[in-house]
Amino acid sequence: MADAAFLALTVITIGSAIAALELRSLIYGSIALMGTLGGIAGFFFLLDAPFVALFQLAVYVGSIAVLILFTVMLVKRELIFNKIEDKRRKFAGIGLMLIIMVSLGAVFLDSGIKTITTDEPATDFRDIGTDFVTYYWPALILMGLILAGSVTGALVLAKREDVENDQRAS
C-alpha cells in the first residue's frame, strides 16, 4: 500500500515538477507547481509528519500558490504563453541536471543510509509545539523577525512609486 502510494507520489511530484518548468502556459505551470507541492505534502504524510504535511498544504498550496497565480495573471497575456530560452542553454542545463542527479544519487546509494530503517513510533506533533517554545525559542523569535521583515519589505517594494502621475481622480 505504502509502496504504491510512494510510487504514485513520485510520479506526480517529479512529473509535475518537470511540467511546472516546461509547460508553455505559466498558469498551467503554476498548477503543476501546486501538484509538486502537494506531492511533497504526500511524502510528508508517508513520513508520518502530518503536521508538516498539512502545514505545507495550507501554506504552500493555500497561500503561496495563490500569490503566484495572482502574480502570473498580472503578467500580460502574451507573456504568459511566451517561452524565453535557447537550445544550447537547454542542453547544457539538461547535462548539468543529469550530472548532479547521477553523482548525488550515486553518493547516496553508495553511502550507508541505505541500511537505515526504523521501527520507532512517529513523533507526536505536540513535541513540535513544545520544541518551538522551549529548545528552539530563539529560532522562533528570529522567525518572527524574518516574517515581519519580509512582509514589511514586500509591501515597501511592491507599492507604486509613480503615484504623482496617477490618473485616478480620488
Binding site: V59, I128, G129, V151, A154, L155
Partner: peptide, 22 residues
C-alpha cells in the same frame, strides 16, 4: 497588499497552532 500579508500571517497562524495544541 492583503494577499502579501496573507502569505506571511497564514504562516504565523499555523505556528500558533503548533504552540496552542501543545
Amino acid at each position: 497588499p492583503y494577499i502579501l500579508m496573507f502569505v506571511v500571517f497564514d504562516v504565523m497562524a499555523i505556528f500558533l497552532y503548533a504552540w496552542g495544541s501543545a
